[in-house]
Design a protein around this nucleic acid. Structure first.
Lengths: 271, 271
DNA sequence: CACAGTATGAAATGAATAGTCTATTTTAGA
DNA sequence: TCTAAAATAGACTATTCATTTCATACTGTG
């Protein structure tokens, strides 16, 4: 049992699979083919299920795992589960450590932020629900006017949305709180509000969203986690999980999502 | 046990989770919170693992599952396993899947923007000059006051910088152009200006940068390409190339660079 | 302060699942 | 066609895991 040679990454796994699949007895070849075509279900299936799918006995499937260098099916599955469950490291602690050590040279700091950006984007791509996304675009494209609110951390996102709509000549209004002027009464029937807020949720944003709902206007929310109070309002929620650095948040994912929505709306309206 | 009312979709699940999480005993609340934050690992975890993650006993976790309307953990997990394949983690595959919905569809747009953001970040990490970056941080950390200007496309970046400095109690002022009020005379000797502008370069931003230089204030520029007019002013130039998609520009790289600078300055000042 | 109702944790139970072993079948070479 | 080696299937075992049970600790109320 050459367990030491077990593939450590998905790439290595595929490589090994391809490598050994040439010289394989019939049943094991079936396993190889089935696995190659259904890699994604390994993490959530049992030996019995996979064996049936490949049309072989469970024991054959286990022999197949061993041939690839694993000690058994469990070890193989562990590889796939680990990769999926891979939690992004705790950036807050990492950042603090970096600061403490004083080794926080700006370029290593940048490396951290860049990596956080990668994680956020990958996570976004992985978890976005295309149905929810296209519904949001639908709702917005029917709006007479789009209102945008997002303060504090969320303000850059709101500002970018306002910019994008402006460039596409889509009627939109940014509620930015300048002069503490409240423009809530600009929200009329037929309008839609985009509310962006992340924990800790801005009271002003929530209030405006509430007001919009009370006027019968749909609210499209861009927010983190599923506990967002915006959900209580019956808002159409787009969830985006982003890596936090203590008080700061990589905004890569939120911005990408926002610009997608904006361009999506613009595309629909041009037709 | 109202097993008939078990959530059938992830959306329903989240809804229910949020619905019941208000009135829950401590341990079950812990489960709810943990699950809300780690939904993605349910499909590939065991009760014991999740329970440990939430800091509760496995039995408590099962009580939690029942509260949500499932017959037990297995039924809950079945829900997540069923949809697992669609969210297969391999980033590239997932992007391709998103694009399958057809060009112009919201999800394919998202895939494009995510890709653009990703390459922008890659680009940034590759091309950044660590000497220039740490010099910029040096210059800024010596400033009596930091002025920030960035309009149009660059405004979200400027706004985020202003937010970050505010959070770190670093004296900073955002020149946002509200009311066409020009605050240039707030720029005094000892201050530093961060000017952010991308092609086509905003005249207002350039003018302000010019003014700052004329007052003998250093200017740290965040801009694209080497042809930026800010270079002519003798500004300290941080270059960031963003990948365009259509008319729009991913801001991921610019924001990451900006936040790096801000946090870098904050770190120096805390010492 | 006592009591009822609820929540909790530890351990026992029982089901599902991975992994092993061996008799049988298939295959290849003489 | 016979024989030896390899491959396979299916029964068997050991393990892991979800779930239940029950004794104990809280919590709020009269």
């Amino acid at each position: 049992m050459q367990t030491g040679s077990a593939p450590k990454t998905i790439d290595e796994f595929h490589e090994r699979l391809h490598e050994v699949s040439g010289s394989m007895p019939k049943r094991l070849k079936q396993c190889a083919d089935y696995i190659a075509a259904n890699t994604e279900i390994i993490a959530v299936s049992t030996v019995a299920e996979l064996a049936e799918g490949a049309g072989v006995q469970p024991s054959a499937f286990i022999r197949f795992c061993k041939l690839l260098g694993f000690s058994g099916f469990s070890e193989l599955q562990r590889l796939f589960r680990a990769i999926y469950a891979e939690r992004w490291p705790d950036y807050t602690t990492r950042l603090e450590k970096l600061k403490e050590e004083g080794a926080g040279s700006p370029s290593s700091l940048l490396a951290e932020f860049v990596e956080a950006g990668y994680s956020s984007l990958e996570n976004l791509a992985r978890t976005v629900d295309s149905k929810v996304l296209s519904d949001a675009v639908q709702i917005l494209s029917k709006a007479r006017m789009i209102h945008i609110v997002g303060l504090q951390r969320a303000f850059p996102v709101a500002a970018y949305l306002a910019y994008a709509f402006e460039k596409m000549s889509t009627p939109a209004m940014l509620h930015d709180g300048v002069g503490s002027l409240d423009h809530r009464h600009a929200i009329r029937s037929g309008d839609v509000l985009i509310a962006i807020t992340f924990s800790p949720y801005s009271a002003v944003t929530l209030e405006l969203a509430e007001y919009a709902r009370s006027q019968g206007c749909p609210v499209v929310a861009i927010t983190d986690s599923v506990n967002s109070p915006l959900r209580d309002l019956g808002a159409h929620v787009l969830t985006v999980m982003e890596v936090d650095f203590g008080k700061f948040r990589a905004l890569s994912a939120s911005l990408s999502l926002a610009i997608t929505v904006a361009v999506g709306v613009g595309a629909v309206q041009k037709k």
